[in-house]
């Protein structure tokens, strides 16, 4: 697997003249967990879709692995949507076999071992699974891909505390953060505080701070939650 890299230069995305993200530039290099933090409506989802090549910037450049992104960047990027994006008519079993056939980087064994650990009923239709289990299964698919870049939009939002803890555990156990670059967005910093290597604070579509998490703690002598409160105020 190649060394992961994400590069944004003066990226702006407008919807009918209304900017959703504005003039964002940063470069994320190498493995690790990158948290995109900010309140709802701060442009996190738009930023993540731009990185995943599922939106086109109104101006500026987005590159992943040194190439401008498009839908075809999906060979380097696994994108986890915040929506219920699985085919409800498939079973977990069918879903995993489908991905094995469709994505050359997909590890069926890894997917099945995760599913077994989660005690998911693989023969049940996805539409009959609980919301928490659908979220888990969605994550299993993203984590079973051996790609340099993982993009996860709000993997915790809208779930019970127990499920959230479970999902974090699933990510820590199975994301290959010594190889992969994982970008995840959340508005709940306290829960992911200890998991982040790097943070990107967003406010009103702008990136207002981008820094290594430990450096921030050392410099400011305060937690990310406190830093967030300070910079977003």
């Amino acid at each position: 697997m190649n060394k992961p890299e994400i590069y944004l230069k003066n990226v702006t995305k407008k919807y009918l003249r209304q900017p959703a993200v504005e003039n964002i530039s940063f470069q994320l290099k190498g493995n690790g967990v990158y948290g995109v933090l900010g309140e709802n409506g701060s442009g996190k989802t738009t930023l993540l879709k731009l990185i995943a090549g599922l939106l086109r910037p109104s101006s500026g450049t987005v590159k992943v692995m040194h190439r401008p992104v498009s839908r075809l960047s999906s060979k380097d990027i696994a994108y986890l949507s915040d929506a219920d994006s699985l085919y409800s008519f498939q079973s977990a079993h069918q879903l995993i076999h489908f991905w094995e056939k469709v994505a050359p980087d997909f590890s069926k064994d890894k997917a099945f071992s995760m599913v077994r650990e989660l005690n998911l009923d693989v023969n049940m239709k996805i539409k009959n699974l609980s919301k928490g289990n659908r979220a888990r299964l969605k994550l299993v698919i993203a984590l079973s891909r051996q790609v340099p870049v993982l993009v996860m939009d709000e993997p915790l939002s809208g779930l019970d505390p127990l499920v959230r803890e479970d999902i974090l555990k699933l990510i820590v156990m199975n994301a290959d953060v010594e190889q992969q670059l994982l970008v995840l967005s959340t508005h709940e910093v306290s829960e992911v505080e200890a998991f982040l290597d790097h943070v990107i604070f967003m406010k009103d579509g702008k990136c207002i701070l981008e820094e290594n998490a430990e450096v921030l703690r050392e410099q400011k002598g305060q937690s990310l939650v406190a830093t967030m409160r300070e910079v977003l105020a």
Partner: peptide
């Protein structure tokens, strides 16, 4: 969201 991210 899934369909567009299929590496195909």
């Amino acid at each position: 969201h899934l369909w567009m991210n299929l590496p195909v």
